[in-house]
Simulated assay, not measured.
Amino acid sequence: MLGKLFVVALMGLSSSVFAGGWQVKIGGSVLAPSKDNNTLADGAVTNAKADHAFSFTPSIEYFFGDTNISSELLLATPFKHDVTANVAGGPSETIASFKHLPPTLTVKYNFKNSTGFTPYIGIGATAVIAWDEETKGSLTGTELKAENAYGIAGQVGFNFQPADAKNWGVFADVRYADVGSELKWNGQKIGTLEVNPWVYSVGYSYKF
């Protein structure tokens, strides 16, 4: 739904606004889930949480004409997470692992000024596309399925382009997403694994 709203909003802009430019970013990100006390399966699984993960995260950004507005699409190679939890009152253990992609689209406001330092803020939509779920520990031999999920994302960061660097620059930003994935265990819904991650990214930028 959020993705459709973005498409409609972009289509509503005048053709003159689209006379802008492109920027690509090449960097890496640490995805740090902030939710660490999920309760699943009617209390049989407690303190469930996904661990931190690192991945290569390129992105594509479009600047709308001479405005301060741009739109950025974050891409990634797969993130892989282990999930730890307490099962039936037992000690904390690794009970599962999964891979996912977190494509994120944000509309950004860039605070342009007379220097090469450009802070920005953004808001948009994100997704969790999960696959390769595997159970471990006391859940080994059972079947786990993580459903694809969608949520809202915010972003704050900066791009720095030295005066003598032509089109090249460096960037750093932080995203926060309100998103979680509904889980099925042996075909039965057991609740939602809330992830709500912080995503910390750094890298190089190149503006065309």
Score class of each variant (00 low, 15 high):
H52V: 06
S16L: 10
N38Y: 09
V128Y: 14
A127Q: 03
H52I: 09
W22G: 04
L13Q: 13
N37R: 07
L183C: 06
K4L: 13
N167S: 14
W168Q: 03
D173L: 11
T140G: 08
K80V: 12
Y150F: 05
S59T: 11
S14G: 15
L75A: 11
V195H: 00
T84I: 06
W22K: 02
W185S: 02
G27Y: 07
K4T: 10
Y206M: 14
A127H: 01
G43D: 08
G157T: 03
A76G: 09
N86P: 00
V174E: 04
W185E: 00
K25Y: 08
P78Y: 06
E134V: 07
G27Q: 07
N47V: 01
E182C: 00
L13R: 14
W198S: 07
V174H: 05
S29H: 08
Y120L: 07
S92C: 01
S29E: 13
L5G: 00
K189T: 14
L2K: 02
V174A: 07
I123P: 00
L105D: 05
G3W: 08
P102A: 11
F160A: 09
D178Y: 00
W198R: 02
G124K: 01
A130R: 01
Q155L: 11
S59P: 03
Q155V: 10
K112D: 13
T192V: 09
P102Y: 00
T192W: 00
V202G: 12
